[in-house]
């Protein structure tokens, strides 16, 4: 198993788009304004081939929310934004009256909450549509350089597959872009594909 068909990717993009819609609804209730989240593309790549361009990582520091999901397949999920974008999102979530030094204080908590909402919305949409149950760990937020993030993504030989979702997020008309990355073992990818095949089989 080293690739997904166009129909598999279409099914996963639709599942994640539904998840993004659920996350947008939750976030709009927090910020009290319209929130748009879209998932324009889903890619599957080998972890060893992942690079800065794949994740649009340039220089600077990045905020990463990690969460582990387990069930019929296990996945390490990482939501990535530049730290500058992360702080803007925190500002939108916490209210614009807050001073910059106060924002940093809430960065950890607010980014964990954002990650928890987006990751769980995407994974719960997947679980509902593909008919299985997933459990999640608590979210964990770190700030790291692009090199540190890439090293971490490539280092686990037990999880050789990386599913990358590009995410566009707009809160109060302000656009930010990030990535949602799932690290999958070979067995987990096979199980995920098997569930997508079962779902597609019901449609034909």
């Amino acid at each position: 198993m080293n690739s997904l068909s166009e129909l598999h990717l279409d099914a996963l993009a639709e599942v994640f788009s539904i998840g993004a819609g659920r996350a947008a609804l939750s976030l709009s209730e927090i910020v009290g304004d319209e929130v748009r989240i879209s998932v324009p593309s889903v890619q599957l790549i080998n972890a060893e081939d992942i690079n800065a361009a794949t994740l649009s990582l340039n220089s600077g520091r990045f905020g990463a929310v990690n969460q582990h999901f387990s069930g019929p397949f296990n996945a390490e999920a990482v939501l990535l934004f530049t730290e500058e974008q992360a702080l803007k999102i925190v500002s939108d979530m916490m209210g614009s009256q807050m001073a910059p030094e106060e924002l940093a204080e809430f960065e950890h908590e607010a980014m964990c909450e954002l990650g928890n909402i987006i990751l769980n919305a995407c994974l719960s949409a997947m679980a509902d549509i593909l008919s299985f149950t997933l459990e999640s760990s608590l979210p964990h937020y770190t700030v790291a350089s692009a090199d540190e993030i890439l090293y971490k993504l490539r280092q686990d030989s037990n999880q050789p597959y990386v599913m990358v979702l590009h995410i566009d997020l707009a809160i109060e008309k302000r656009h930010t872009a990030g990535n949602l990355v799932f690290l999958l073992s070979s067995a987990s990818l096979t199980n995920l594909v098997s569930h997508v095949d079962q779902f597609l089989g019901k449609l034909s």
Partner: peptide
């Protein structure tokens, strides 16, 4: 825009 979604609705 999703072929899968169109298949699902049609089905």
């Amino acid at each position: 825009d999703s072929k899968v979604s169109r298949m699902l609705i049609r089905s």
